[in-house]
Amino acid sequence: MKVTLHVWRQAGPADRGRFARYDVADVSPDMSFLEVLDVLNQQLIARREEPIAFDHDCREGICGSCGMVINGRPHGPERATTVCQLHMRTFPDGAELWIEPWRARAFPVIKDLVVDRAAFDRLIQAGGFITARTGSAPEANSIPVPKRDADLAMDAAACIGCGACVAACPNASAMLFVAAKASHLGLLPQGQPERSSRVVNMVAQMDAEGFGACTNHGECMAACPKEISIDFIARLNRDYLKAVIRRPW
């Protein structure tokens, strides 16, 4: 099959950027979308043009490195699928695709489709952890955790930190990412001592990074390759409200 790609090319953070058109022939339906970019890059390098920069690593949909907007949808049209696991058979022959990086103030473009997601790391540094010094842990079974809580915590913990939720949100909000981490840790007994400070600190950091506010569009959940539920946002809001009322902790 053949595809036409309009790829966002931006030489660096200061460059304005533009779409460049590429026609790629001999695409196999069994290729992943990233493999089409590999093939295109091979051709670009052979023509002594600059290859398209994009983040990728595991190509199994778990590391969260890859991510790009395809025809307006983060990670493309397939439900619950990262772009590395998106196969070309999803698209009709002759498809015309517009490829853009994540667009959010908190995720500045580094080059082409590569954005700087260090803001997510700083959100975790602000409170997305349980303080447990190595060696200080009690016997693992000393605190039972109801299966229901453990399962729900796991649903939230499945987040791969790709940033699709931010890219999908009209406000470029990081609420789903923060809510997933706050819920994962807040649902477990081990996470209780820092539950209030965690949500307050992470929300403050989210504002400081320039992420927008949540206005309940639900686009994040629709784009999430791990189908993380916006129920966790309700949980975060409740924890946040309780924490600020109870202040100081």
């Binding site: 349980i130 447990a132 605190i143």
Partner: peptide, 9 residues
């Protein structure tokens, strides 16, 4: 023990 204390589900 360590992983459970860190909140590994």
């Amino acid at each position: 023990d360590q992983c459970v204390a860190q909140g590994v589900p």
